[in-house]
Design a protein around this nucleic acid. Structure first.
Length: 127
RNA sequence: UCAGAAGAUUGGACGGCCGCUUGCGCUCUAUAUUUAUAUGGGGUGUGAGAGGAAAGUCCGGGCUUCAUGGAAAGACGGUGCCGGGCAACCCCCGGGCGGCGCGAGUCGAUGGACAGUGCAACAGAAAGUAUACCGCCGAUGGCUGUUUCUCUCGAGAAAGCAGCACAGGUAAGGAUGAAAGGGUGCGGUAAGAGCGCACCGCGUCUUUGGUAACAAAGAUGGCACGGUAAACCCCGCCGGAAGCAAGACCAAAUAGGAACCGCAUAUGGGCAUUUUCCGGCUCGUGGUUCGGGUUGGUCGCUAGAGCAGCUCAGUAAUGAGCCGCGCAGAUGAAUGGUCGUCGCUUCUUCGGAAGUACAAAACCCGGCUUAUAGAUUUUCUGAUAUU
RNA sequence: UGGGGUAUAGCCAAGCGGUAAGGCACCGGGUUUUGAUCUCGGUAUCCCUGGUUCGAAUCCAGGUACCCCAG
């Protein structure tokens, strides 16, 4: 158990964040999208052999800044648990929040993300 | 006990696992060299890490830039009872006046309507220098008739009565309306009327109390002076504009341009907005076409009109003094994710179940406004019961 | 983050203190054998809550929703 945690932490270092608005727009227009109850995943391949990740929670999801921040933090926790071991390298991932992201239980939210990745054929085989 | 009024405080607690930002210490590593420091990247230990409204962005300041200092007037915008507080304020405290409430209290953009202009639909006789109309009266004058008297029997004169509504008097009444040019009562009159009187209201003057707003008392006038300024406006006071994505620095890259035309060439032009005056700075300027650039980092960035306690002054807002504290600084944006136990509230079939507010810093302060589950607490008012 | 704007019937909208115009759509009646056309009528919490005023869609204050601009 402890070894797995250690590996996870090393993998998380390879996750870099998408920060520029132009990158978000490029991925949204050229990439692929899969929708689940808890969240939406948008992906596009990149040149380097790393995983990049971004989060989008717009004002349309919820008016309250408190609830939007909570959704964003939950997505960040889910991504930190699932993506390092469960997704392929060389891809950009954007997680888009939905109203249900705040109320859905943590386990089902993780399952939603894995289901989206599996449907798009980007699931990495866990060793 | 019930029903209220005005404040004040607080805004769940503990633990396991996994994380984030940042200050400091230790340590590893890369680069630069003045071989011990600087900068960058990691590891580890330890400390700190959302609010009463952080919100709305409605006011007032600090700070920064606009090269730029002062004075006057105008425009535009804001503000408006009096006194005090504050760095300042559309803020706060106390008081006056008016509305509401049995009361504790509460609400009020609360200067000026003899500086001027405007507005009041519909209804109503009339909506503002009141009186045209209906109505009432017709005392007085006029006309007509009648009675009495005189008489030259034609008529005349005087007084009384009746009528007409011609001159005129009047504003009590006239269904309205938010508002009708003082109100109620008595007298008075031809009918009436502040025409007279009493009380109330209003204006003016004086005195007293109060720093003042204003209040009270007395005298006097005889009603003259209606409403609306969150209509224009007048008067007093205040205000240059834009905002930390302000702005400063570093690195990289690019450019320090070209052509044509017009004006001006220093007694001139420009320097934010309307004009003028004084002072200061700067030197070519305007248009069209072609060409080039529009990234990253650091600082600004948190010690400030700061917070807590005590004493003194003050009705209070607040001020003064003493003592203590060190308290977020992110930038696709940290301050958490998840699991468990316990509080609190409601429901309960007594096993439990559901809920646990509003709302998250973004340069920083002082206010205002709006949202807010619940909990604790102080003072006061009214009603009922008991003593 | 800062700056600015709009809200009137299902839709497009006029109105600037005194009865909420108009068009399209919808509903009902008439005309027609029936339908279209035509014709008559109906349909409004003036975004919400207070205030000023005799009276507010309009003036003032606070709030809500939506939209635009700078970068």
């Amino acid at each position: 158990m402890l070894l797995i945690m250690q590996a996870t932490k090393d993998q998380q270092a390879s996750l870099t964040q998408i920060k520029k608005r132009s990158d978000f727009l490029k991925i949204q227009s050229k990439g692929r999208k899969w929708v689940s109850h808890g969240l939406i995943v948008q992906t596009a391949p990149n040149e380097d052999d790393i995983k990049r990740i971004g989060y989008t929670v717009s004002k349309r999801v919820d008016k309250s800044a408190v609830k939007r921040n909570r959704i964003k933090r939950r997505l960040r926790a889910v991504a930190a648990d699932v993506l390092p071991t469960g997704a392929m390298n060389g891809q950009d991932y954007i997680l888009v929040g939905r109203p249900a992201s705040a109320t859905r239980s943590y386990e089902t939210l993780c399952e939603d993300l894995r289901w989206c990745l599996r449907k798009m054929g980007l699931e990495a085989k866990t060793p």
